[in-house]
Design a protein around this nucleic acid. Structure first.
Lengths: 193, 193
DNA sequence: CGCGACGTTGATTTGCCTCAACGATTGTGG
DNA sequence: CCACAATCGTTGAGGCAAATCAACGTCGCG
């Protein structure tokens, strides 16, 4: 199991000392998931947070009409979990599914609490991580209530330049909140400018 | 200056000891703001995070057509700041304005860093605070991309039962992302059911 | 090979916006 | 305390953005 990616990831925020690395290693388990495999399904409790070493996953909700709505993608060096379910222990309404064959590192809830309790540095690191995630998602809310679908699409391309050529337009449409048909029309309209 | 509300607020997460309270006290300044007064304007850097002791404030963006889009309301025991600007030191694109006469407690950026650095408990508290905020806003994103305006309005009423009778429908419309005229039609439609 | 996901196009419908107007309420200055 | 302005909530007519439904060719994969 190669922990280098996650240790380097943490070091971007605060370097870990040897003991913290040892403890971290003992709490992490590696998982390989195939394309279309789920690591969370509606009704389950989200028991892990997952760090993506390699690959791509999506988290989404299925509405009462059966349509999927993508909340988040995560690729290399990203995190993915339904934090609401993870911390409350309640059933999740979300799915997390691999879009590519992926390698992830998982930490269980109890182990996360253990790390927080005994090594305050993890409080620090995850405070900063989640602050950054919060700032990003706040911009997305602002976009959703103030921009047209075309603007949201162009912003998606700018904000996720490493993502748009890895996933289908169906996935992008679901993320920006339009139908695939309408996204196709948006794309046509852009290229004819 | 009455720090009781904020100390009790923190104690919901982790009790503070005497030294932490003393340090906190020395870093907090109280501010009274009148209705329609700004504590942040576009182009300014967000230099404080603010805890609302009493009153109500909104944070919003003005788009290129001059329309306002409400990102957040904060009332008693809530926080408000443009975290992106606060941590990056870059100019904000947002406004924070009082909807009622309010009393707030403010912490400056340097003091926040001081507290984080010297008292890890604040890392813990704000990690949990921001996690909860993140979970809430993620639900909002999901709603925005998957629900009709009527559903978003009803959810707003459910999620903010103490707020809807304190602010105008114009403010609610701006929060859920519709025009005031259309919200009026939604409300009419609901009452005739 | 055959099936299912994908991307596209067109016709039609619907949700929501824009603009304009109005009375009711609130706030404010003289 | 009154007069006036500003904001609010509502209604209606018309228009546009995006959804829905249906159809079709293409591609990748089992």
């Amino acid at each position: 199991m190669n922990l280098l990616p996650i240790i380097e990831h943490f070091s971007n925020y605060t370097p870990l000392d040897d003991l913290e690395i040892i403890e971290l290693r003992s709490k992490i388990s590696e998982k390989k998931v195939k394309r279309r495999q789920f690591i969370l399904q509606e009704g389950d409790v989200c028991k892990h947070i997952s760090f993506v070493v390699d690959g791509c996953l999506k988290m989404y909700k299925v509405d009462n009409k059966g349509s999927e709505h993508n909340l988040q993608f995560s690729i290399e060096n990203g995190w993915i979990a339904d934090l609401g379910s993870f911390y409350s222990g309640k059933q999740s309404e979300l799915y997390i599914e691999a879009l590519e064959q992926s390698t992830i590192l998982q930490i269980k809830h109890v182990d996360m609490i253990y790390l927080y309790t005994n090594y305050p540095k993890f409080d620090r690191i995850f405070r900063v991580l989640i602050e950054n995630a919060f700032i990003k998602i706040q911009k997305r809310v602002l976009q959703n209530i103030s921009s047209t679908a075309e603007e949201r699409y162009l912003d998606f391309l700018n904000n996720y330049p490493n993502l748009f050529n890895r996933i289908s337009n169906v996935q992008i449409a679901s993320y920006i909140g339009v139908t695939p048909e309408f996204l196709s029309k948006i794309r046509k309209n852009i290229t004819t400018k």
